[in-house]
Structures are given as C-alpha cells and as structure tokens.
Design a binder for these strands. Structure first.
Lengths: 134, 134
DNA sequence: CTGAATCCTTGCCGATACTG
DNA sequence: CAGTATCGGCAAGGATTCAG
C-alpha cells in the first residue's frame, strides 16, 4: 500500500475514478437483457436452460454474455455441478437481489402506466396538440 | 366503441397485447441513454443544450432520438418557445417522475455497491475460486 | 438554438458449428 | 447441457451538414 499516506480524505482523482466506475456499472446494468435476466431469476435458482426459457426471446449467446457480465460484477452466483451432462445453476447474490428490488418497482411502474403511455402514443402519432402536462 | 360489447373481462388476446406492450415499453426505457436523461432532468426544466451538457458524453443525435421516444411515451413534456433563436424546454411528466424515482434508487444502489463490484471484478479477472456467495 | 437527414463506422446480436 | 468461437447482417450510434 503506497497510496494516500498523507491524506485520509478522497482526493479529486478518487472521485473521478469512482464516478467513471459508477457510470461503467450503470452502463453494464442499464440494458434490456441484463435487467430481464435479473428479474427472471428473482429469488430462485435456475439452470442455464431454464433461464433461457424464462427470458422470452433471448438468444443463447446473449444469455451467456450477460451472465458472464453479471457474474463479473458479482450480481449473480454461478455454481457448476461437475456431473455429466453438466449442470450449472445461477442465483442472485446479495447485491444482485438489491438491484432486483429496483427492477421490480420498474416493472410495476410499467404496468401501472400502460394506459397512459398507450394514449400518449396515440396522441403523438396523430400529431395532435394535446400534449402531456408536466 | 365497438369492442367487447359482450364481455367486461379482459380476454387472453388483451392480456397478450398488454404483455407485449409492457415488454416494448420496458425495452424503450431500459436503456442507458433514456435512464441517464431522466435522471439528469430530475425535478428541473432544462433546455436541449443544457440537457446535452448535463448528460456526460451523449451525442446530439442520441439526445434528440431519446427525447422523441420519451415524449412519445408521455414521460417528458416538450415546450417550444417560438422565439428566435428557438428555445425548447423539457420537463418530466407525472409518470416520468414516477420512473425517475426508481432510477434514483438504481443510482444509489450503484454507489452503495461500488466496492463490492470492484472487488468482484478483481477476483473474476484473476480467475480465483473465491466466488461470490449467494 | 433545435432538429432532421445523410453518410459511415462500429458493435450488437443471431445462427451455426465445435468442445468438454 | 453448457460454453466458446466464428461469421455475417443489420441496426445503433457518431460526425457532419443543412434547414427553420
């Protein structure tokens, strides 16, 4: 340890690093497939193939790719059973479940606002002046 | 109105339609730029150029594109002041602010878990067996 | 200042085939 | 069954330009 022997407070460089890291994580996580996978996992433990069936429309490749990413970030736990044929199970970690909670509220937000959005789209399509009020 | 004169309950077709709509909205909204724009707007009213400065790294094109999408879905309100040069202001609508609340918790989740994720990445890079525990 | 349209590059993503 | 690698199409997204 050679860093910051003279100061216990985070300096500007630290803050910038933390910010860019946060942004990177946000970019990783704020994508359709990642969120759908997290939502599908929920409190359960699922095998690769089960997960694939659960997440409507995801391809083999996208699933593995996103699972690797989520594992790398410590959001899912990957357990390999060395049987034949292999059996690999995925579970959300603590932080993963934390994120899932917010994805849940995002999903319910979507359903709560289906009608509003549907109507807004109609208005937008017809180009009527009756815009949304803030 | 000619639909469903014989039944007040949603039938299967309705449910499937609602599901695909929900998925569509989710796909619209669950993307990096859209969420960052919503987060940047917050409770404020911002002009196009201000918003562009606020959302680090977004391009002119992505900003307009996502703003149109958010407006179409009724999440942001777009107000044009017919001056010269033109002045266009963006504000979150009610539903938009609702979504923002969950984006907020997502952001704080990110910051709360910076360390965990950073360490998980290190472990993943070195390929050590000390994986995350569920 | 905004916004639309154009070109052009990059990377996503699906399909496929091959290992353990 | 699960994972990796490769190829190719196509859409996302950046830079630039023109219009209102």
């Amino acid at each position: 340890m050679v860093t910051k022997q003279y100061s216990g407070l985070p300096d500007e460089a630290d803050l910038r690093r933390a910010d860019s890291l946060a942004r990177e994580i946000f970019s990783d996580v704020a994508n359709k497939w990642a969120l759908l996978i997290i939502e599908a996992l929920g409190e359960r433990t699922l095998r690769f193939s089960e997960l694939r069936a659960e997440v409507e429309g995801i391809s083999h490749k996208m699933l593995t790719q996103n699972l690797r990413m989520l594992e790398r970030n410590g959001l899912v736990h990957r357990e390999v059973h060395p049987t034949v044929p292999p059996r690999v199970e995925y579970t959300l970690t603590g932080p993963g479940r934390g994120l899932r909670a917010t994805v849940d509220t995002m999903c319910s937000w979507t359903h709560r606002n289906l009608r509003h959005i549907e109507e807004s789209r109609k208005r937008f399509a017809t180009g009527t002046g009756t815009a949304d009020t803030p």
